[in-house]
Design a protein around this nucleic acid. Structure first.
Lengths: 353, 353
DNA sequence: CTGAAAGCGCTTACAG
DNA sequence: CTGAAAGCGCTTACAG
């Protein structure tokens, strides 16, 4: 047998130096009970001095420890396929860390049904999970669950939207205000002076409406700060079926000659559909999210710009953050804002969401 | 002792099924010589049937094998800090895989000196490396080196620019044509009709000029295809010092009232400097690359748009591709085009290059 | 061409 | 509170 790598120190060497057995070294290494303060201190000191780094391969090979993560996000619905991407990211991460003894169990809820959220949360609560990723869409229900997890000391990651002021491990998602602000700048480029912009919010009552308001706030603030002469009008459409949206749009577009329409969420495809059907021309259309429908209208030139926030990466990084925190004990940034990507028909092919 | 995980099969089980020792199983698993065709076939069949997946932790723990990768990219110079980012990506990847027994050695060359490229290449050639990443900037010199590597069967990754038609593992970098095409669309948005655009190529003779031409081609083709009335003018500036650039710009800008200036590479900061010094206003400025200087002028509103191609990720993915290919034997996509990112002063803070 | 044994650096029961 | 031994699933020499 060859001699082992010169540089590397292991439990054996530490044990020798401390005059104990490797079992005892292992106990302090893994913070297990049953070591006298005195020997513990002695071993800790040696570990420090040697800057001991455990061999992760040996650790994994020998360990029988398993961790279980739960994820709670909206189910993919007919209304929107947005959540396919985060789910895909979650599965990608799960696949990457499964060899490290981590199991990821996915739970879902219906975006139009607060109860379904609470139901799934309850299932997670009794499931004895070691880490949880969630999209905290419904504020009240989320907070109840957050407090439960805090009590049980289970680390919690938020993706896509944040509930600030709680003791979560981290938030991974967009800076909504800034993405609205950016959209406004694009609008400003498209129509420097004296133009008319229509802001369209399409969302049911139950949706997290304050989401959209935050984007709108950024959008409006840009124009205020830049003393723009653009005229901003806004409509709220609170039913999401096409006939309804069509009616509302048609009424609104009669009232004025708009140059730009800015849709504050992924439902921009519905507006695009209207534009196409009614041969609306000369109005620039901007909206959100890398969804198949939206890309379709981006390609056929009905939509001009899509603002995207790497939904897949949100899921991926969310799960990986739990892993880094729990397994590798790495420091996790509390607020992780995603890039704000500007997608056009020239670069969507290369967008690795 | 607990029983081992039910599902998992290992060399032991395979050996038992094949009526051989685990040593023999290991030999066929790792394609080593000294196994009769007959037993080899038998073992291979069992491995297939069981869909055996080796335990990577046990493998790493037991193995003494080391791999060495070489990287060859331009050194960071006063002229441009662009290559800091790919180098950073390379180091990040190196750090991630060093526990897997992989050493990454970095070599550099001077972008203004073909000989320095060949010198470093020679050093790599005698260094017995198992995989190589390079930026094949100088065509002739690169090809000589490529052929040498092909002969020695050393896998080769290109980043940042491609030399098509050679037997490299993959290319990771921008689609230059498309990024020029995208820029043109932005220009078109900014100035729909009857405007004047100046294309600026700033590069020394020795630089890979065809790079810039490819972008320019995409840029021009956009306008041709869209029957635009925009007037395109172009200047080539072949010395890269500020006084010279200043002179050239000043001469050119006297000749016409330009609305847009499009700089085909990262030297857009120099043009921005000129704009700032001479209080040039009302001209939109577009250029390339997420460099400190460029960001400075983006922030102070001299530069309007920067087109970026994740240089750091190019280095990172380049090294990881060698690793995936050589260690995990994964299929590697031959052409990996980077996203074409549009950066403004609203989203640069979130750009994770 | 093949097998048996030692070892990689940890963790896990078990005994005391 | 501590130690000694077995074992995780591979690879590595060595012997035949």
């Amino acid at each position: 047998m060859e001699k082992k790598n010169s540089g590397t120190v292991g439990v054996k060497e530490i044990a020798r130096l401390a005059n104990v057995s490797i079992g005892t070294v292992d106990r302090v290494l893994n913070n297990r009970v049953g070591v006298s303060e005195k020997t513990k201190a002695k071993i800790l000191k040696i570990i420090q001095e040697l800057d001991y780094q455990p061999n992760i391969f040996a650790r994994r090979l020998a360990s029988k420890k398993k961790l279980r993560f739960a994820t709670l996000i909206p189910q993919v619905s007919d209304e929107t396929t947005y959540w396919e991407a985060p789910l895909h990211g979650i599965k990608q991460a799960a696949n990457e860390i499964k060899d490290f003894g981590i199991e990821v169990v996915t739970f879902f809820f219906d975006q139009n049904n607060k109860e379904s959220f609470s139901d799934s949360a309850s299932k997670i609560a009794v499931g004895e999970f070691d880490g949880i990723l969630m999209a905290p869409m419904f504020e009240e229900e989320s907070i109840a669950f957050i407090e439960l997890c805090n009590h049980k000391k289970i680390p919690l990651v938020f993706i896509n939207s944040d509930i600030p002021g709680y003791n979560n491990l981290c938030y991974i998602g967009p800076n909504l205000y800034q993405s609205g602000y950016l959209s406004a700048h694009i609008v400003h480029y498209l129509s420097p002076v004296d133009k008319k912009t229509l802001i369209v919010n399409i969302s049911k009552e139950i949706d997290l409406h304050h989401h959209l308001l935050r984007k709108e706030e950024g959008f409006r603030n840009y124009f205020e700060q830049h003393g723009s002469t653009n005229k901003l009008t806004k409509i709220d459409i609170r039913q999401t079926d096409y006939p309804h949206i069509k009616q509302k749009l048609s009424d609104q577009l009669k009232q004025d000659d708009y140059n730009i329409v800015f849709v504050t969420n992924s439902r921009v495809a519905t507006v695009a559909k209207y534009f196409e059907e009614h041969k609306v021309e000369g109005i620039k259309l901007i909206g959100y999210d890398f969804l198949e429908d939206n890309i379709h209208y981006l390609r056929n030139k009905t939509i001009d710009f899509l603002i995207c926030q790497k939904p897949q990466e949100q899921g991926y990084r969310g799960v990986m953050s739990l892993y880094y925190h729990l397994v590798l004990n790495t420091h996790i940034e509390k607020e992780q804002f995603m890039p704000i990507d500007i997608i056009t028909r020239e670069n969507y092919q290369y967008y690795s969401n």
